[in-house]
Write a protein that binds this DNA or RNA. Structure first.
Lengths: 154, 154
DNA sequence: TTATAAAACTTTAAGCTTGAAATAATTGCA
DNA sequence: TGCAATTATTTCAAGCTTAAAGTTTTATAA
C-alpha cells in the first residue's frame, strides 16, 4: 500500500495521492506513537479513546466509541479494559438498558489527558510544520468531502 | 487520534488537518482491507510487501523492505514467512553476505500480484473519486514535502 | 404471552505491530 | 591475527486489530 503505481492510465494520479496520503499518515503516526510511549508511557489507541471521552463528559457507549473511532467493537473492549485497570476510565452499567454501559474518564483520566493533549497538539504542529496554515485549511477542506462518492452505498 | 482539537490557538488548523488526514486514510484503508480479504483472501500487509517486490524483480533484502514500507524488521519477518509458506515469495541466502537473504516474488506471486494490483487501482480510483485529477495532483504535491521540517533531525 | 429477532457487548482465533533482546555474520582496527 | 563493534535478521512479549461466534438483554409481533 505504500508502494508506487504499477501502471499508467486514468487512475494513476489518484493512486499516487493515496500512496502519499498513506505514507504521510504512517510517518506521523509512527512518530506520535513513539513520543507518546517515551514521554507519557501510553499508546495511540488509548489516547484516541481518551480524546473521544474528553469531548463527551456525559460519557459514551462502547458502540459510540467504536463508531466514532472507526474501529471494531471487540477492539474497543480491550482498550477500555486496559484503561479501566489503569484507573483512567470507568464503565458504569446503566439502569435503563442493561446491555449497555456508559464509559467515562475518571478525574485522574481527565487530568492525564489534558496534560498529554496539550503536548500532543504541539507535536502535530511541529510535524506538520511544512504545511502553512493556509494550505492546512485548503487540504482539510479537500479531505472533508472525499467520502461522499462511495460511503453508504450498500 | 481521530478526535477533534481540544483547544483553540495557533496549532489548531494543523491539528484539524491531521485528524482529517488520519480519518481519510483509516477509512480508505479499512475498505481496501475488507475488499482484499473478500475478493482475494489476502491482507493489506501482504499486498504491501508484494507491491514492493513487484517493483524490484532483482529482489530486496529484509531491511530494504522494512525501510521502504515504514515498518519494523520483526514485522517484515512474519509477513514474509507467511508469503513464503503460501508459495508467493522466496527467501534466498546470499553467498556474498550470509547474514542477509534476498526476497523475491515467485512466478505465481508475480501473477497473483498483477491480477490484484489491477483491481486495486480501480478501487482506489473509486474511493478517491470525490477528488478530481487536478486536485489529486495538488494534494500529492503538498504531501510530498511535509516531512522536510523534522525528519533526520536526530 | 411467548417465541423470535434484533441490539449491545464480549470472547476468540488469527494475524499485524512494535521495541527490545538474542543470534549470527561481517567489518574495522590495534 | 584476534577481538570489539557493527550490521542483518529473528525471536519474543505485549498490545492492537479484525471478523466471526457467543452471551445477555431488549424489542417485536403473532
Amino acid at each position: 500500500m505504500v508502494a508506487g503505481p504499477t501502471s499508467t492510465g486514468p487512475g494513476k494520479e489518484r493512486l499516487r495521492l493515496w500512496i502519499r496520503l498513506l505514507r504521510a499518515s504512517r510517518t506521523i503516526e509512527a512518530e506520535l506513537r513513539e513520543r507518546l510511549k517515551k514521554e507519557f508511557d501510553t499508546t495511540l489507541p488509548r489516547f484516541d479513546v481518551m480524546a473521544a471521552l474528553y469531548r463527551s463528559p456525559e460519557g459514551m457507549l462502547m458502540s459510540d466509541l467504536s463508531r466514532f473511532l472507526l474501529v471494531s467493537n471487540g477492539n474497543v473492549t480491550g482498550i477500555v479494559d486496559r484503561l479501566v485497570s489503569e484507573g483512567l476510565v470507568t464503565r458504569a452499567r446503566r439502569n435503563g438498558d442493561r446491555r449497555t454501559s456508559m464509559v467515562r474518564l475518571t478525574e485522574e483520566g481527565t487530568k492525564a489527558f489534558a496534560r498529554i493533549a496539550a503536548v500532543h497538539e504541539g507535536w502535530v504542529g511541529e510535524l506538520l510544520g511544512g504545511v502553512s496554515e493556509e494550505e492546512a485549511k485548503r487540504l482539510t477542506g479537500m479531505l472533508k468531502s472525499f467520502r461522499s462518492n462511495w460511503e453508504g452505498r450498500e
